[in-house]
Amino acid sequence: MLRLRHDQWLQMVGHSLDCLPEEACGLLGGRADGSVEVFRPCANVDRSARTYAIDGLDLLRFERELETGGEGLEILGVMHSHTHTDAYPSPTDVERAAHLGPWHFLIVSLRHPEPVARSYRILGGQVDEEPIILAPI
């Protein structure tokens, strides 16, 4: 389960739209129970409509920030947008997930007029969708 606040959801959709025609990406910081406390929009260093990559230094700095905050927050996962496909992990997403660990993988699809978000756990190549709980601000 991934718990998002409504403002974080709006921020993710806004970031996804702002990055068009390229894919957007960002990092999710939060608690081990799946509650997102911080969404960090990141630059897509691929500058591509078909792929994304996050600068390793952005990840490192975000992780340090969460740790030094003293609130027990950690990197929970990654968000990215699919500009022209559904919100389902691509073969590339699944391959790369094997090197990221038990993260939450949130995908915002802009394929249809209304943005669609889905979240997944990807372990051992197996993709399992998880519910997104949208909480008020």
Partner: peptide, 12 residues
């Protein structure tokens, strides 16, 4: 030294 995963993927 920091070892950092390369976070990447995409809709393809």
């Amino acid at each position: 030294l920091s070892i950092v995963p390369a976070v990447a993927g995409g809709g393809g």
